[in-house]
């Protein structure tokens, strides 16, 4: 793990869904690692990607930008991207950036998986 990075990322395939589960902080340093995992999810060609943020303590705009980039790829490739499990403080940055209505957001992983 590069110096100063605290991010670990889980990657799991359930049927036609890829679940990406980052754990730790997604700041300036970690956004690059996060982007790599999201690219891997897109490369899998799964029709649905769920990003479970339940174990993300902190995110700043480089982390958000990575998800915006992933959303753009999703739109181009007709992949469904769902974010879930955000804590109040992570959700707040999406609200500040007016992105809370741009992303499909679920309260938790179970709700995201059950979404048709």
């Amino acid at each position: 793990m590069p110096e100063g990075q605290t991010l670990q990322v889980g990657f799991e395939t359930q049927g036609e869904t890829v679940i990406v589960s980052p754990q730790g902080e997604i700041g300036y340093s970690e956004a690059t690692v996060f982007r790599t995992w999201l690219r891997k999810a897109h490369d899998s060609k799964s029709p649905r990607i769920i990003v479970d943020l339940a174990k993300v303590d902190y995110m700043n705009t480089p982390g958000v930008a990575t998800l915006v980039e992933s959303l753009q790829i999703s739109k181009r490739s007709k992949t469904r991207l769902i974010l879930c499990g955000m804590n109040e403080k992570v959700f707040a940055i999406f609200k500040i950036a007016r992105l809370d209505t741009v992303f499909e957001i679920c309260p938790n992983l179970a709700a995201a998986i059950s979404k048709a």
């Binding site: 700043n60 705009t61 930008a65 980039e69 753009q72 940055i93 950036a97 741009v102």
Partner: peptide
């Protein structure tokens, strides 16, 4: 501008 959804440029707005 926030209506222009693209990566980057959010820090100053925040």
């Amino acid at each position: 501008e926030l209506h222009d959804v693209k990566p980057g440029g959010l820090g100053v707005h925040v």
